[in-house]
């Protein structure tokens, strides 16, 4: 029994390692100074797909990502780890999308890929921490959702059983397929690159990347079609243009501020008994403690 699995993945700036040059003087983010990475929880989602693929021969795993042309990098990265291929949704018309416009665009691609059995996504992307795109895609595609998956307990061609990680405990739920499952960072880590697959897919490219590369890839693609990463622009998705990008985004950023600490009047002390006794005496005298 093989399943058709689609994994939503996003290339994100690595906000966990923000250096001094990450912010421009006008308070906007200097994206160029941040390395672009595979969104961490999307790797956890990919792993869940690959585990199912290992257990159920005939399963296919494909990535769908929306982003600039270079986001094709994460599709290749997923292929090095065991995915079969992917779709890059890229168009200037998608620029400025908030989560609603993003999920609208992605949902059009998902509908084109129907029927499928399982849609996986990360719980949230580290650039916004919103955790909205997964559930909103599910809504627009018209399938149920299971968020915060820590483990896919079992899967059959008809249904899936998932353990969800909640704040103060867990829950095991069962849903009929197709459904969306968003995967939490407490799920197992993604396997690393497989060297054979890395060799095999090293030259996988989108049409735009092919046109840019000066080499003759055309012949190569004919003999090895699996190297072609599908690229879809707005035209391929037949969208309502009012629902795309900035136009289709109800949320607007009114204002952005750098985080600045208000300076406080500080009393600086050292480890001497004298200093510590002074501090404790003050705290007791002011009824902060005691």
């Amino acid at each position: 029994m093989g399943l058709k699995i689609i994994v939503l993945a996003k290339q994100v700036p690595d906000t966990r390692n923000v250096g001094q040059d990450a912010m421009k003087s006008d308070g906007t983010v200097n994206r160029a100074a941040l390395p672009a990475i595979f969104n961490p929880e999307d790797l956890h989602a990919l792993e869940q797909a690959l585990v199912i693929k290992d257990a159920h021969p005939g399963t296919t795993v494909e990535i769908v990502t929306m982003g600039p042309p270079r986001a094709a990098e994460i599709i290749r990265e997923a292929m090095y780890r065991g995915a079969d291929g992917g779709y890059l949704l890229t168009d200037r018309a998608f620029a400025g999308s908030d989560t609603l416009a993003t999920s609208y665009t992605i949902s059009l691609a998902i509908k084109k890929l129907m029927p499928f059995d399982l849609l996986l996504s990360g719980r949230q992307a580290i650039d916004g921490d919103t955790a909205q795109v997964g559930p909103q895609v599910a809504d627009k595609v018209g399938i149920p959702q299971i968020t915060y998956a820590e483990e896919i307990v079992s899967v059959t061609p008809k249904d899936i059983t998932v353990k969800r990680r909640l704040e103060r405990g867990y829950e095991v739920v069962k849903a009929t397929l197709p459904t969306l499952v968003t995967v939490h960072s407490s799920a197992v880590e993604c396997r690393s690159r497989n060297s054979k697959l890395t060799m095999k897919y090293k030259h996988a490219k989108t049409v735009s990347e092919l046109q840019e590369a000066a080499m003759d890839y055309e012949g190569m693609m004919k003999t090895r079609p699996y190297l072609q990463i599908t690229e879809w622009t707005a035209d391929d998705l037949n969208p309502d243009s009012q629902s795309l990008g900035l136009l289709g985004s109800p949320t607007k950023v009114k204002n952005i501020e750098n985080v600045v600490f208000k300076a406080k009047e500080t009393v600086d002390l050292d480890t001497s008994e004298k200093d510590i006794d002074f501090l404790m005496r003050e705290l007791i005298a002011n009824h902060i403690i005691g």
Partner: peptide, 11 residues
């Protein structure tokens, strides 16, 4: 952005 900026969002 990982807490490096404070944004005011409106609908």
């Amino acid at each position: 952005f990982g807490g490096n900026i404070i944004a005011t969002i409106i609908n």
